[in-house]
Simulated assay, not measured.
Amino acid sequence: MYFEFIKIQILGILQYKKAFTLGLIAQLSSYGAEFFLLWIIIDRFNEINGWSSYEVLLLYALNLCSYALASFFLSSPSSRLSIMIKDGTFDEVLTKPLNSFMYLVCREFNSGYVSHLLLSIAAMSISLLNLHISMSLIHILFFIVVILSGALIQGAALLLTAIPSFWVVENSSLKDVLFFQVKNFIRYPLSIYPTFIQILLTFILPYAFINFYPSQFFLNKQDFLIFHPLFQFLSPVFGIILFAIAYVLWLVGINNYKSTGS
């Protein structure tokens, strides 16, 4: 049933093919420009703290790919939750004889992130080919695990920045700061930042596990800063734990939800 919601959402969007195509082109242009700006900066300086341009490109691709997967399901719910609570339409979610979380994320499935996914796949292919990385079966399987783990981390972050809406309705700035602004740091190697930022992005807001630590497994790098090399394998652990925490807090928010009565 949940997949039927996704199917209906996609079919509805495809009824307006021109609008979907224009939106796809706009997103590709926007993120493509961001990618080329990043490329120009890295290419101009040849490397950043021992990371070559194609290695930084891999960081960018892992971040964008996992963001796309997470945003398919959680971008719209995390953006619309405060509005739904404010105008009372969230009540409709709770009246369905389904898991409220699963119902909401499938009903609000956002296919607009296809462009992000395509661009990230292209960037990953370019970086892996130019770095001459031989991908064994183990490498391929771990690569998939890393992307899914990154999606769990990003999805948890989107959810965690939306959950306060159950208590403080107008909180869009929280998502802007804790998700979009802070996550900009992982466009570049974590080792270029001061120790405080490294600890922040490793333990408090563990975005470094989206790309920085796991990428070193494929690149055969030893840039683990003050941390243990084992960190390159911990993305699934952080992804599962963070998403579990986010889901538990979602349930707490549901239990504390007070309808507008409209």
Rank of each mutant, 00 (worst) to 15 (best):
M1P: 13
Y2I: 06
F5D: 11
I6S: 03
K7Y: 07
L11A: 12
Q15I: 00
Q15N: 13
K18T: 15
F20W: 12
T21L: 15
L22E: 07
G23A: 03
S30M: 12
G32I: 09
G32A: 13
A33C: 14
F36Q: 12
L37D: 06
L37P: 08
L38W: 13
W39D: 10
I41C: 13
R44F: 15
F45C: 02
I48V: 15
I48P: 12
I48C: 11
I48A: 13
W51F: 15
Y54M: 15
L58S: 07
L58Y: 06
L59E: 14
L62C: 13
N63G: 12
Y67F: 07
A70K: 01
F73M: 02
F73Y: 08
L74E: 03
L81D: 09
S82H: 11
D87E: 10
F90S: 03
V93I: 15
V93D: 06
F101R: 01
M102P: 02
C106R: 10
C106S: 15
C106L: 04
G112L: 05
S115T: 10
S115D: 10
S115C: 06
L118Q: 02
A123I: 04
A123H: 08
I126A: 10
S127E: 05
N130D: 08
M135F: 06
S136P: 05
L137R: 04
H139M: 13
I140M: 06
L141K: 01
F142Q: 03
F143G: 01
I144N: 05
V146H: 03
V146A: 02
I147R: 07
I147G: 04
L148K: 01
L148Q: 03
S149A: 03
A151R: 00
Q154S: 12
Q154M: 12
L159R: 01
L160D: 05
A162M: 09
I163M: 11
V169M: 05
E170N: 11
L174H: 06
D176K: 12
F180V: 08
F180S: 12
V182C: 01
K183M: 08
K183S: 14
F185R: 07
R187L: 09
Y188P: 01
Y188F: 14
P194L: 00
T195D: 14
F196Q: 06
I199K: 11
I199M: 08
L200R: 04
L200K: 04
L201F: 02
T202Q: 07
F203W: 12
A208T: 01
I210H: 03
P214K: 06
P214T: 09
S215L: 04
Q216T: 11
F217M: 13
K221W: 03
D223R: 02
P229T: 11
L230Q: 14
L230A: 15
F233C: 06
V237F: 10
F238P: 02
F238N: 07
I240Q: 10
F243I: 04
A244W: 07
I245Q: 09
I245P: 08
V248P: 00
L249H: 13
L251A: 11
L251Y: 13
G253F: 11
I254M: 04
I254Y: 03
N256I: 04
Y257H: 07
Y257Q: 06
Y257P: 07
Y257K: 07
K258D: 02
